[in-house]
Design a protein around this nucleic acid. Structure first.
Length: 665
DNA sequence: ACGCCAGTATTTTTT
DNA sequence: ATACTGGCGT
């Protein structure tokens, strides 16, 4: 036994748990395995989360303290779910653990130890869009006419290239040759852009998402005393969804746990994030990097009917690159086959879903247990329209997200500027709202303000409402400028003494609310959103923490829908990962939509296959896969074929349905 | 040179 | 629904 306890610790006080009785053999073996490198291959629906949660409980029961466990997940939702379930099981509060997404843990460490790599502690985080804007400016500073040429890559693609390079720990050159060969002629220039981009971020004291990981690794590599501290502290490291880690994340895990007490849980068949550098090679090579790895499989599926699993297995067995062999074994009794529904067009597809949903609800099904899944957001558009028209309540967890809405971001920009005056991006975001202030004028105003601050030796925020600054604003903007400057000053004053929610409230009550009123017809809705932000802010003691969480938690969905208990769910397959539903409709399963046109053109649909597999395995009892025969959107109508993933498998595995005009059964 | 407006295109997936 | 473009006005 290697659960050696430090002399001072004693077994953590948790409720008695009968691990043997509450877990099946496979799960039990994983939960109670000796510490050391552990690779748990957990198929869809096999109780992966359950296994991880019980593992944590098991470690606690062996005397490991919560603070000694590091729990890394891929999404915020997974992190929350995990910590909630641990708390439920052990009564140990979720926040006693270091648990969260890679990005949030990286953020936490950098906030604490950033100085070791010359990162000031009040840095702010850019979201993807802002990062792109900063990159765009950086590119223009190097080559002002680069984007004038239509054949040159735009900021979006440039950002993807740089991000991909960083997440795979590869050079720009190799990244472009491997993933973006169409841009090979720009290799040298893009290398220069990447450097300029890094420099600009430093100047503004901001970091992008990738930095949270890159700097984390850098911190471990360049600050041995910090690295050692955490290596000693986290005696157990658990990683969820390991197949979706990229090279950078795998390197971080390896560096955090040189003691090899890592439990990696995953399923190579469910790797669906390779566009972000995820590489399921990581999971395949885990045993090589961690000598003595014990590999355990959990393959009994408690979720789905045998018929659904047979179809899922068939889909994944057609993959070209074999990973770990796997075959899900059904636990449930036999039931009906999945349905494959051909609709004439997307409208008919939506009609079918609605009719069936009504039937299910009449049968007494819980609407929350019904989900409509799709490959891409825009596929859901018709569905949304038809649902609204039919009066079927739905909750959509994709599309415009709460923290991504313009007014939320505007207000957050206020906060960012108050706490980090070097954050030009935040400055521009707000000041471009003023009349007659565009990109150029905005930058000028910023520079003037800096000059005024220097000259009078005052703070940036105070320099904003200095007469010397105000008189530089365009005449049409002057009144607004002054009012905004005063708001920011008030916010800063509160910030010194008050709590984050008070600062947020001050921001809402200031210039911004008058702007909001003029700018948007649905002013009161937006104001409501902002007020709910005050409540959110009250949960934080540190403003830096609040701002960071808003940026990192951008998947939280709009607040208004939350109370609709009776709503069915609409989500992308990506967002449905880790979730399960009694009844699942997969819509838009036509070649060109799922798999996407893009993946077909590139000639690699394997990731799409895994995604399809994820979609199918979300269903417990009933599965409907639908596709429209005709595409009426975007240009001339075109005939569509069913998804190749359906065509490849035996027609015995599903029940084809042709829709009758009255939508009857 | 700069900002504004209106019309047009445009959507993978997430931290 | 939002982002971008091109042309117009200041």
């Amino acid at each position: 036994m290697d659960f050696d306890l430090s002399p001072t610790s004693n077994a953590f006080d948790i409720p008695e748990i009968d691990f043997r009785a509450e877990l099946n053999d496979e799960q039990f073996a994983a939960v109670t395995a000796e510490p050391g490198p552990l690779l748990i291959l957990a198929g869809a629906g096999s109780g992966k989360t359950r296994t991880l949660t019980y593992r944590v409980a098991y470690l606690l029961s062996k005397g490991v303290r919560p603070g000694e466990i590091l729990l890394l997940t891929f999404t915020n939702k997974a992190a929350k779910e995990m910590l909630d379930r641990v708390e439920e099981l052990t009564a140990v509060e979720g926040r006693s653990f270091w648990g969260g997404t890679f990005h949030s843990i990286g953020h936490r460490l950098l906030r604490m130890h950033g100085e070791a790599i010359e990162l000031p502690k009040n840095f702010t985080i850019l979201d993807a869009g802002e990062a792109e804007t900063v990159l765009k400016h950086a590119v223009e500073s190097v080559d002002s006419s680069f984007f004038k040429n239509k054949t040159h890559p735009k900021p979006g693609p440039l950002s993807s290239i740089i991000s991909m390079a960083r997440n795979t720990c590869e050079s720009i050159e190799r990244t472009i040759l491997a993933f973006f060969p169409q841009h090979h002629e720009f290799i040298e220039r893009i290398e220069g852009f990447a450097e300029a981009y890094e420099k600009r971020k430093r100047e503004q004291n901001v970091v992008d998402y990738d930095d949270l990981l890159v700097f984390w690794l850098k911190l471990l590599e360049t600050a041995p005393e910090v690295a050692e501290h955490y290596q000693n502290r986290f005696r157990h490291c658990l990683v969820d969804e390991y197949q979706d880690t990229n090279v950078l994340q795998a390197a971080i895990v390896d560096k955090m746990a040189p003691h090899h007490r890592i439990m990696a849980v995953g399923d190579d068949a469910q790797c669906i994030y390779s566009w972000r550098g995820a590489n399921f090679e990581n999971i395949l090579t885990f045993p090589d990097r961690h000598p003595g790895t014990e590999i355990l499989r959990i393959e009994t599926n408690y979720r789905s009917t045998p018929e659904i699993l047979t179809m899922a297995n068939a889909i994944i067995q057609n993959r070209t690159s074999q990973g770990f062999e796997k075959e899900l074994r059904a636990h449930k009794p036999s039931s009906q086959k999945p349905f494959v529904v051909q609709a004439m067009d997307t409208r008919e597809q939506a009609q079918f879903v609605i009719t069936r949903i009504r039937g299910l609800i009449d049968e007494g099904r819980d609407p929350r247990e019904i989900a409509v899944l799709y490959r891409s957001h825009f596929v859901a558009l018709d569905m949304q329209m038809e649902l609204s028209r039919a009066g079927v309540p739905y909750q959509i967890t994709s599309g415009v997200r709460f923290f991504e809405q313009a007014h939320i971001k505007d207000l957050v920009a206020h906060l960012r500027l108050v706490y980090n005056p070097a954050d030009v991006t935040a400055f521009l975001r707000i000041f471009l709202l003023l009349p007659k202030v565009g990109e150029k004028t905005g930058q000028k105003l910023y520079d003037h303000t800096i000059a005024v601050a220097k000259k009078h030796e005052i703070d940036f925020i105070d320099a904003l409402h200095h007469p010397d600054t105000i008189k530089k604003a365009p005449a049409a903007a002057r009144a607004d400028f002054e009012s905004l400057a005063i708001s920011l000053r008030d916010m800063k004053q509160i910030a010194d003494t008050g709590s984050p929610d008070e600062v947020v409230q001050m921001g809402i009550d200031g210039w911004y609310s008058s702007y909001l009123q003029g700018a948007y017809a649905n002013y009161s809705n937006r104001l409501e959103d902002l007020n709910s932000l005050v409540g959110f802010a009250a949960r934080f003691e540190e403003m830096q923490e609040l701002i960071a969480q808003i940026t990192l938690l951008n998947s939280e969905t709009s607040g208004r829908m939350e109370d609709s208990d009776e709503a069915i769910r609409l989500t992308t397959v990506h967002q449905a990962k880790g979730l399960e539903f009694d009844i699942v409709f997969v819509i838009g399963a036509a070649d060109g939509f799922f798999p996407t046109r893009r993946s077909i053109d590139v000639g690699d649909t394997e990731e799409e296959r895994r995604l399809f597999y994820v979609a199918v395995t979300r269903a417990r009892d009933e599965l409907y896969v639908l596709y429209p025969k005709m595409n009426t959107k975007g240009g001339p109508s075109m005939f569509l074929n069913p998804s190749r993933f359906l065509q490849e498998i035996s027609t015995d595995l599903f029940e084809p349905i042709r829709i009758r005009r009255n939508y009857g059964w």
